[in-house]
Simulated scan of single mutants.
Amino acid sequence: MNILKFIALGAAVAYGVSYLTKRDANGHSIVDDVLDKAPDLVNNLKKYGQDALDKAKAKAV
């Protein structure tokens, strides 16, 4: 029974990787889009983290 679980999980992972790396008409994949937006996402996360720290410090005082 465990071997069937591993086969199903492997098939799901293979399909997911295939879907994420498939190119559209413009030649971009979902992974390419995420990697292009990554620096902006990191900067936004840093801002949100700093805002959360500032609010936590304000409540502590």
Rank of each mutant, 00 (worst) to 15 (best):
A60C: 09
A11M: 06
F6I: 04
N43C: 07
M1D: 01
L35P: 03
A12M: 09
F6D: 01
V17G: 11
D32C: 06
P39Q: 03
S29I: 02
N2K: 12
V17F: 09
H28Y: 12
L35G: 08
V13N: 06
A12R: 00
H28A: 11
K5D: 02
V13Q: 05
H28L: 10
Y48Q: 12
D40N: 13
N43P: 05
Y48L: 14
K47N: 10
L41K: 05
R23P: 04
D32E: 00
N26T: 15
D32V: 09
A11V: 07
I7N: 03
N26W: 06
K37Q: 15
D24P: 05
P39G: 05
A58K: 07
T21N: 13
D40Y: 14
I30Q: 05
K57A: 00
D36V: 10
V31W: 02
A25E: 12
N2H: 02
A12P: 03
A38F: 14
K46W: 09
T21P: 02
A25K: 08
D40E: 14
A11Q: 06
I3R: 01
A58P: 02
V13F: 07
Y19G: 04
K55P: 03
A52G: 09
K37H: 11
Q50K: 15
V13I: 15
N26M: 01
G16S: 10
A58Q: 14
D40V: 08
V17P: 03
V17D: 03
I30S: 03
A14I: 06
N26V: 06
A12F: 05
N2D: 10
G49R: 07
N26E: 15
L4D: 06
K46I: 12
V34G: 10
Q50V: 14
